[in-house]
Amino acid sequence: NQASVVANQLIPINTALALVMMRSEVVTPVGIPAEDIPRLVSMQVNRAVPLGTTLMPDMVKGYA
C-alpha cells in the first residue's frame, strides 16, 4: 500500500512545512504520496491541519 503524508503536529494556516511536521503512514483515503515529502518542505498550507490529518493536494499552496 502507498504511504501518504500525515501531519505530525497541528500545522497552523499559512505555515511553511518542515520535515518535523510530517510523517508517512498508510491511510485511507490516500493523500499526497510520502515520496513527495522533500518537495513539500517550505510550501505553505492554506488551512489549519490538525495532528494526524492526511495532507491532500488542495491543502498545500502550489502543490497541485
Rank of each mutant, 00 (worst) to 15 (best):
N1S: 15
N1R: 04
N1P: 15
Q2S: 13
Q2Y: 12
Q2D: 14
Q2A: 13
A3Y: 12
A3W: 13
A3I: 08
A3T: 12
S4N: 01
S4W: 03
V5I: 09
V5N: 02
V5D: 01
V5P: 01
V5W: 03
V5E: 00
V6F: 02
V6I: 13
V6P: 01
A7W: 03
A7I: 05
N8E: 09
N8L: 06
N8F: 04
N8D: 14
N8T: 13
N8H: 07
N8G: 06
N8M: 10
Q9E: 11
Q9L: 12
L10E: 14
L10G: 09
L10W: 14
L10M: 10
I11G: 00
I11A: 01
I11R: 01
I11M: 03
I11D: 00
P12W: 04
P12H: 10
P12K: 08
P12S: 07
P12A: 10
I13S: 14
I13P: 13
I13V: 13
N14R: 07
N14W: 15
N14P: 00
N14E: 08
N14Q: 11
T15L: 04
T15W: 06
T15V: 07
T15A: 11
A16I: 15
A16K: 09
A16R: 11
L17C: 03
L17R: 00
L17P: 01
A18T: 15
A18W: 05
A18R: 12
A18C: 15
A18G: 12
L19Q: 06
L19H: 10
L19Y: 13
L19P: 06
V20W: 15
V20C: 14
V20Y: 14
M21A: 04
M21I: 03
M21D: 04
M21L: 05
M21H: 09
M21T: 03
M21K: 02
M22N: 00
M22W: 02
M22V: 06
M22Q: 00
M22C: 03
M22Y: 02
M22H: 00
R23S: 06
R23L: 04
R23T: 05
R23P: 00
R23M: 05
R23Q: 04
S24W: 11
E25M: 10
E25R: 08
E25F: 06
E25Y: 07
E25G: 11
V26T: 09
V26F: 08
V26G: 04
V26Q: 10
T28I: 08
T28F: 11
T28V: 11
P29W: 03
P29D: 05
V30G: 08
G31P: 00
G31M: 03
G31S: 01
I32N: 00
I32L: 05
I32Q: 00
P33W: 09
P33A: 11
P33M: 08
P33L: 09
P33K: 07
P33C: 06
P33H: 12
P33Q: 06
P33F: 09
A34K: 07
A34M: 07
A34G: 13
A34L: 03
E35W: 09
E35T: 10
E35N: 11
E35M: 11
D36H: 12
D36T: 07
D36A: 09
I37S: 04
I37D: 01
I37N: 00
I37R: 07
P38E: 09
R39M: 14
R39E: 05
R39D: 05
L40I: 08
L40M: 06
L40F: 02
V41H: 04
V41C: 06
V41E: 05
V41T: 05
V41W: 03
V41A: 05
S42F: 13
S42E: 09
S42L: 10
M43V: 04
M43A: 07
M43C: 06
M43L: 13
M43H: 09
M43E: 04
M43F: 12
M43I: 04
M43S: 06
Q44V: 10
V45R: 00
V45K: 00
N46S: 11
N46L: 12
N46F: 09
R47K: 08
R47C: 06
R47N: 06
A48G: 07
A48M: 08
V49Y: 03
V49D: 03
V49T: 04
V49E: 02
P50L: 11
P50I: 06
P50C: 10
P50G: 11
P50V: 09
L51R: 15
L51I: 14
L51K: 09
G52K: 04
G52I: 03
G52E: 04
G52S: 06
T53V: 10
T53E: 08
T53C: 08
T53N: 13
T53H: 14
T54N: 02
T54I: 09
T54P: 06
T54R: 03
T54M: 03
T54H: 02
L55S: 02
L55D: 00
L55N: 02
L55T: 01
M56Y: 07
M56T: 14
M56P: 01
P57R: 10
P57V: 07
D58S: 10
D58T: 09
D58M: 11
D58L: 11
M59F: 12
M59Y: 10
M59E: 02
V60I: 12
K61P: 07
K61Q: 12
K61E: 09
K61M: 12
G62K: 06
G62Y: 15
G62M: 10
G62C: 15
G62T: 08
Y63W: 13
Y63T: 03
Y63K: 03
Y63G: 03
Y63V: 04
Y63N: 04
A64N: 12
A64F: 07
